[in-house]
């Protein structure tokens, strides 16, 4: 659905984005992660045909985005990180305006807008002035606006920023529903835990370079370093602790208040699976729960490496 090749953007001599490449298949959710100023917004703005790249290529729906921006804009729904609204319009008028501006007829829009408002949970605000909506509601209205012309692709730049935890959960549910509807979504966010729950793929960008782009499962598998394994055995607790200490990859084992063990494990997933197999053969296991490697760990590692490299230079 989306293919980005060697995308580069320079602002004078400053390289905001340096030759990044990735692809997103139809129906996938691609999470774009990176610190402030990493190049996320610049990339999304180029995808939204709001910024011309210095070089490189973006193909959306089989069409080169910059050769036919009007066609591309039909395919995409864009939600920027900062956006304004027309305060003097009512919610339905606001959506009608953007729908008409995107080439849909008023009759069509009047038929579709109720279901769109239901999707984003603003049905009872249909006749309210946009000015009277809360921040979270405006955010959801902006999402409805991005959907009003039935785009196949959604580009969401920090859609959860400034939202309270409840609004974030609601937004995540809406995005999951959109995924079920077959939309292809690229979403940038700082909330990495949320992205790992939501996305099928993830890209980590730092200093304009795409440090990593892969399916979430693969990315999590790559997370190296210590992880904590919670273990509960039926009996022979001390024996189990001593046995664990002798195993490959286990750096430390502690007894916990709940009557179980917590093992500090350093190694890949295959070694971890071997440990489980061996332990299950020797002891009656109630629990063997490794704490999942998360995006935050990986993100911190990648950005830390870059920081160190910079400091050495």
């Amino acid at each position: 659905m989306i293919r980005v090749s060697n995308l580069t953007k320079y602002y004078d001599k400053f390289a905001a984005v340096q030759g990044i490449s990735f692809a997103v298949e139809r129906g996938n959710i691609y999470g774009f992660v990176g610190p402030n100023g990493a190049g996320k917004t610049t990339t999304l703005r180029m995808l939204a045909t709001l910024l011309a790249p210095t070089s490189g290529e973006i193909i959306i729906g089989g069409v080169q985005a910059f050769h036919n921006p009007q066609h591309t804009r039909k395919l995409i729904g864009y939600m920027p990180d900062f956006f304004g609204v027309y305060n003097d319009l009512k919610v339905d008028e606001y959506l009608e305006f953007y729908g008409e501006a995107s080439g849909r007829t008023l009759d069509d829009l009047r038929r579709d807008i109720p279901s769109l408002l239901e999707l984003v949970g603003l049905t009872d605000k249909r006749q309210s002035y946009v000015n009277n909506l809360s921040r979270g509601m405006k955010q959801r209205l902006c999402l409805a606006r991005a959907l009003v012309h039935r785009p196949e692709v959604l580009l969401l730049d920090e859609p959860a920023s400034g939202l309270d935890p409840r609004a974030r959960v609601e937004l995540r549910n809406i995005l999951k529903e959109l995924q079920n509807m077959g939309k292809t979504i690229i979403i940038s966010s700082h909330i990495l835990a949320e992205l790992s729950q939501l996305c099928t793929h993830v890209g980590i960008i730092n200093n304009g370079l795409l440090a990593l782009s892969a399916p979430v499962s693969e990315v999590l598998a790559r997370v190296e370093g210590d992880s904590l394994i919670s273990i509960a055995v039926a009996d022979r607790l001390e024996e189990a602790r001593l046995w664990l200490l002798e195993q490959q990859g286990v750096r430390d084992v502690a007894l916990v208040n709940t009557g179980g063990l917590e093992a500090v494990f350093s190694g890949d997933r295959l070694t971890q699976a071997g440990l489980l197999r061996e332990m299950a053969a020797r002891f009656t296991l109630f629990e063997f729960t490794p704490s999942k490697g998360n995006l935050e760990q990986l993100f911190m590692k990648i950005t830390e490496v870059e920081k160190d490299a910079k400091a050495q230079n």
Binding site: A48, Q70, R73, G84, V85, Y86, Y98, S102, R145
Partner: peptide, 14 residues
């Protein structure tokens, strides 16, 4: 100033 220009240029309005 209202930060609506991007949303406007993203539509089918040339």
């Amino acid at each position: 100033e209202r930060q609506t220009i991007d949303l406007l240029t993203c539509t089918q309005l040339t």
